[in-house]
Every structure is written in C-alpha cells, then in structure tokens.
Design a protein around this nucleic acid. Structure first.
Lengths: 197, 197
DNA sequence: GATCTGATGTGAGAGGTTCTTACATCGGAG
DNA sequence: CTCCGATGTAAGAACCTCTCACATCAGATC
C-alpha cells in the first residue's frame, strides 16, 4: 500500500507500534528493543525517538492499546441477572483476555512500566475499575461498590498472572484453569452476597 | 572480617547475591546489571559468570531466597480455629510480604525469569502452594483442597501485584489496602464454606 | 616439602543496547 | 516560490552481556 517511501516514512508512529507489539509477542517485553523495532519498520535506530521519548514510552503505548481492548471487553457484557454469574463471567473473561495474548498482558502489567510517568495508562486503569464497578453496581450497596470491584479485579488478576508465569503449572492443569477462575469468583460473590443480607 | 583479599575473593557467590538484592532494591529488576553487581563486590565484570551462568540466573538465585522467605512466613501460622480468619490472615500476610520488600516480590514474580529454566524456583513455588494447602486442610474437603488453595493464593497475589504496580492507586488509598485484602479473603472463604455445607 | 591441577579471578574484546547531537530532507503554509 | 518545522539519518558516547585466553592460588598427591 505504502510500499515505496522516500526519506520520510509517512506513518512511522503506527508502524513502530505494530512492530512493538509483534516484537513483544515474539520475545517478550524484556526481549523488546527499540533498535529492532526500528529495523523492522525500515528506519534508522534513532528515528523512533522522534515519536517516543523512551523505550518505556513505546511499551507504554502498546500497553495503552491493551488497556483499551480490555476496556472494550468489559464495556458490553451479557446481562446476567445473577450476581454470582456476572462475577464469574468477569473473572473468566479476564483470564481469557490474558491467555489469548499473553504478550499483551505482560506488556500491560509486567513490563516494568512506571505508571506514574504515563498518566494515560493510569487513567485507562481507572476506566477498567470503573467498568467493573458498573458491572457490579446493580447488585451492591454503593458504599462498598468501589472496594468490591477492586476485590474482583484482584482475584481475576491473580489467577491470570499466576497462571501465565507458570506458578500453578504443577498444581492445576491447563484445561481446568478457567473453571478455577470461575469457582473462585463464585465463592467470592457468594460470600459477598451473604454478607449483604 | 574478610577485608583484605588477594586474588581470590573467598565468598564471591554470596557477595554477589547480596549485591544483587541490594541493587534490585535500588533500581528494580530491570535496572539490575551483572556489571554493577560485580563492581560492588569488587571483582571484574566477568567474575560473576564463574558462579552464575546468566544474568537471569543471578535474579533467579535472589528470587529463590525470596521464595524461601515466603515459605517461612507460611510455615508457622497462628492457629486460628476459624476458616475465614485463617484465610484472611494468609491474604494479609501475603500482601505484607509484598509491601515490606517490593523489590524482592518483583524479583520473584515480575522480573521475567523463565521458571522452566530454573527447577529450584519451580519447586519452591510448589512448596508455597503446599503450605497453603496445609493451612486450609483442616477446613476443606480433600477433593477440592488443591483448587481452593490455588484460589486463595490467586486472590492474595492479585491484590499484591495490583497494589504494587499502582493500579489501585486512585481507587483505594494506601491505608485501606490491607483491609481490602482481608475483606476479599473473608468473602471468598464465606462463599467456600457455605458451598461445603 | 615440592609439584600439579582445578577452581576462581582478570583483561580484552565482540557485538549488542539506549539515547544524544548535528545535520539532511521534504511537505505544506504563507 | 520560499522557507521552516517536522521527520528522517549518521555517528558516537556510554553502557550492557557474555566469551576466551590467560593468571593465580589452595589443597590433594607423590
């Protein structure tokens, strides 16, 4: 499409972003290098610094895309009428999100990005939290909504990270991981519900 | 004590390990470098490779120490007679472990170590799981013990990692994080207990 | 006691990285 | 049509990991 380029690329920022996600998928966030991304985009190794201040900024940009995708996933959820079912759906969805693209998940949460240096990332993390609150809102006392949403997020996040890093490898076999997430979420939700009454 | 050394250090491996944990504490796992560790131990930059095959191996060794410490923490727990109290104690302890030395926790779980390359690490992760199983054993059906322990670990781990990475920063203020962990664990335990009956 | 040897440390260096700085190019506003 | 700001390049400083040939020395062996 934009094969023959002259001195200027035309869409380098996006090309670099694509190269970044591809590279991270192949080699992990640690294996990612600005040089290699530049190489793949066909530009010199200093060109990326016109578009990103930092190596970290490139990863942060990729992570931001990931956070948007995660947000999207939670923005329209099936209208489960039961609290427990909804909690379970959220936890399982989160786990699937992590498993279907581990590199993306790693970039978002385990690439060592200093979130305080990237407010856009911070904001998008808050959006995720807000979506969870919206999802649980109909079932909970507003006074505890924030905490409960954070708890569910924590639970789902814990399952996802432990699994992805292989900490449960010799404990729960791969096929049953989803049901573990579901069971954990259901237990939690049941406990929450029983305390409310 | 071992101030004046000649050509040979005498205890380089340990000195390097100490330098590693110190360095990680200062600069994070990503900021750690073999060269700098060598410098601090007062040896040449190639000396560490006599004791560790890899940069990763140094981090793995430090992580292993961390896993031992975590194991220790769970090996003797107060004899709470109530299931929910014990679950809460575990979650809160885990969170404290993470917060009292974030660098150690980061090394253990977010430094990008390939666990499959370090069976000692893998084994120690299994030990942690086993300790959790032992702690919950008295209260649970043996058939579901493994899964339940993994669920609790996940929950605690999720809280710890989200907090340490600042994802809950604008959601739950720092002082209330422990009570969030406790509340989450209690809810989960209550749900588990109610399903057992 | 002298020697030999394996473990441990050194120096140099190949090849990689991030990021900066001075300069080159070019599209579009005036 | 000009010129200027945005975007590219080339070169290089300062790191990094890891390897290889060589130096040193403590302790086992004769």
């Amino acid at each position: 499409m934009e094969s023959k380029r002259g001195y200027h690329h035309g869409d380098l920022r996006n090309a670099l972003l694509a190269a970044t996600t591809e590279l991270v998928r192949e080699r992990g966030a640690r294996g990612f290098s600005v040089s290699e991304a530049a190489r793949r985009a066909g530009v010199s190794s200093s060109a990326p610094y016109r578009h990103f201040s930092d190596r970290e900024a490139m990863l942060a940009a990729a992570a931001l895309v990931g956070f948007h995708a995660l947000g999207e996933r939670f923005s329209s959820l099936p209208d489960e009428r039961a609290f427990e079912a909804r909690a379970a759906w959220i936890a399982v969805s989160y786990l699937r999100f992590a498993q279907e693209d581990p590199a993306r998940f790693e970039t978002m949460f385990a690439s060592g990005i200093d979130k305080s240096r990237h407010e856009d990332l911070m904001r998008q993390a808050v959006v995720v939290q807000a979506l969870l609150e919206a999802a649980l809102g109909p079932f909970l006392d507003p006074a505890e909504l924030v905490d409960r949403a954070a708890e569910l997020w924590s639970l789902a996040h814990g399952v996802a990270t432990l699994v992805l890093q292989g900490n449960l490898q010799h404990v729960v076999d791969a096929g049953r991981v989803e049901s573990l997430a579901e069971s954990a979420a259901r237990s939690w939700a049941a406990g929450v519900a029983s305390a409310q009454r």
